[in-house]
């Protein structure tokens, strides 16, 4: 169940892969929507940590267009609800995340991504 909050925090970490290594686009995904607790304070506090463009693009890729292209200055209730949904309620159960730079494939099975590196990819 890779959620987009998690996806937004993961970069490819193979040896020497230091640029163009985020975000890791999904492919062959199976998605589930599951309700999560709405906590506006948490969302507001976490927003500065989010790479906004990556979140919007990834949501779009998974078929959710509810987020504005630019991060809004005013966080009204409608915005927080969409942000909450995208960040915490979309779960990628199966699929692959691929590094745009080195093409390393990180498979997801039963909701758990395998981020282990091969022995030639560690420093």
């Amino acid at each position: 169940m890779v959620r987009l909050i998690t996806h937004n925090l993961l970069a490819c970490h193979a040896k020497g892969c230091n640029s163009n290594n985020f975000p890791l686009p999904f492919s062959n995904v199976q998605i589930e929507i599951r309700e999560a607790e709405f906590n506006p304070e948490f969302l507001k506090a976490f927003l500065p940590k989010i790479e906004w463009k990556a979140l919007v693009d990834t949501a779009k890729q998974l078929g959710d267009m509810s987020l504005p292209l630019e991060q809004p200055e005013m966080m009204d209730d409608d915005f927080l609800k969409s942000f909450h949904h995208v960040l915490l309620e979309i779960h990628v159960e199966e699929g692959v995340m691929t590094c745009p730079n080195c093409k390393h494939e990180y498979p997801i099975s039963n909701g758990i991504p395998n981020m282990l590196l091969a022995e030639h990819e560690i420093g």
Partner: peptide, 22 residues
Amino acid sequence: SARILDLLTFDVTHNPWRCGGL
């Protein structure tokens, strides 16, 4: 279970966290 955000398989000495202060 809704509060377990995610589980990930990786070696913490080669971790994929994009940034600190999380």
